[in-house]
Amino acid sequence: MLEVRDLSVNYGSFRALHGVSLTVQPGEIVVLLGANGAGKSTLFRTLSGLGRPSGGSATWNGTPLTAGRPEFNVARGVAQCPEGRLLFPDLSVEKNLRLGAFVHRRDRNAVATELERVYTLFPALMEKRHVPAGSLSGGQQQMVAIGRALMARPQLLLLDEPSLGLAPLVVEQVFAAVQQVNRAGVCVLLAEQNAYAALGIAHRGYVLEGGRVSLTGTQAELLGDDRVRSAYLGV
């Protein structure tokens, strides 16, 4: 469904991605492991249409994603939950969620249905729906950020560092929700530094180092690889 071929991205004279290739197949959670500066966020920005590549291609169901029109990519079924959440802190939880459905705003019944699904997935948000998003805990803010992306009714969810800064118990809750979303039919490409949590739910994965894919494998293969265990699992 998602096919990235030889994707390169430059920032001026600096090359952030060097010929990256990867795929996400129907029903998969695919993890992208890598340290800060490895190129994970650059890849996500490019797949979302927020940046243009200098070479290569990325397609979703055969349709190019790299034309630089983010709203078109969202309408095609690709939504991103960005690193750092990027909520509107002074707006209520529900208004933040509804902004995620902007491309479908004319279909009020569908928006109401998606809103109900988000509240079912994250019951704590129902109680906080009229509270400013900026007043929530970090874990609840992450739930709002994921819920906002889901309001776009994506077929592919790009999750950028969802566990960043969260307590272990909250990380478990967030990743359990990601699995639930996946079981409902949404493909997930997950960028993470928390390799334990990410590989615990992923089907396959890629390791990104210095803007290049250095390793790929199934969940079991990556968990058993000495390079992954040393660099990301502390073993």
Results as ranks from 00 to 15, higher is better:
Glu3Gly: 00
Arg5Gly: 02
Val9Thr: 06
Asn10Leu: 10
Asn10Pro: 02
Gly12Arg: 13
Phe14Gly: 00
Phe14Glu: 00
Arg15Ala: 10
Ala16Asp: 02
His18Ile: 01
Gly19Phe: 02
Ser21Asp: 03
Leu22Asp: 07
Val24Glu: 01
Val31Asn: 07
Leu32Met: 10
Ala35Ile: 02
Ala38Arg: 06
Gly39Phe: 03
Gly39Ser: 05
Thr42His: 04
Phe44Gln: 00
Ser48Phe: 14
Leu50Ala: 12
Leu50Gly: 05
Gly51Asp: 12
Gly55Trp: 08
Thr59Leu: 01
Trp60Asn: 06
Trp60Val: 07
Gly62Gln: 11
Thr63Pro: 00
Thr63Trp: 06
Thr66Gly: 00
Ala67His: 09
Pro70Asn: 02
Asn73Pro: 08
Asn73Tyr: 00
Arg76Pro: 03
Gly77Asp: 07
Val78Ser: 09
Pro82Ile: 01
Gly84Met: 04
Leu86Trp: 04
Leu87Val: 06
Phe88Asn: 05
Phe88His: 05
Pro89Phe: 12
Asp90Gln: 13
Leu91Asp: 06
Glu94Phe: 09
Lys95Ile: 05
Leu97Glu: 08
Leu97Gln: 09
Leu97Asp: 13
Ala101Tyr: 03
Ala101Arg: 04
Arg105Asn: 03
Arg105His: 07
Arg106Thr: 08
Asp107Leu: 09
Asp107Phe: 07
Asn109Tyr: 06
Ala110Asn: 02
Thr113Asp: 11
Val118Gly: 12
Phe122Asp: 10
Ala124Val: 14
Ala124Phe: 01
Glu127Leu: 04
Glu127Asn: 03
Lys128Cys: 09
Val131Gln: 14
Val131Thr: 14
Ala133Val: 13
Ala133Ile: 11
Ser135Tyr: 11
Ser137Leu: 11
Gly138His: 14
Gly138Met: 08
Gln140Phe: 10
Gln140Ser: 05
Met143Tyr: 13
Val144Gln: 07
Ile146Val: 14
Ile146Asn: 04
Ile146Glu: 01
Gly147Ser: 08
Ala149Lys: 01
Leu150Asp: 05
Pro154Glu: 12
Leu156Glu: 07
Leu156Trp: 10
Leu157Gln: 04
Leu158Glu: 13
Leu159Val: 15
Leu159Lys: 05
Leu164Ala: 15
Leu164Cys: 04
Leu164Val: 07
Gly165Val: 03
Gly165Ser: 01
Leu166Asn: 10
Pro168Gly: 10
Leu169Ile: 15
Leu169Phe: 11
Val170Tyr: 13
Val171Ala: 06
Val171Arg: 11
Ala176Lys: 14
Gln180Ser: 09
Ala184Val: 03
Leu189Gln: 06
Ala191Gln: 01
Glu192Met: 03
Ala198Leu: 02
Ala202Arg: 03
Ala202Asp: 09
His203Ser: 08
Leu208Ser: 12
Gly211Ile: 06
Arg212Ala: 14
Arg212Cys: 12
Ser214Thr: 15
Gly217Asn: 06
Ala220Gly: 01
Ala220Phe: 08
Asp225Ser: 10
Arg227Gly: 00
Arg227Asp: 09
Tyr232Val: 07
Leu233Tyr: 11
Leu233His: 11
Val235Asp: 00
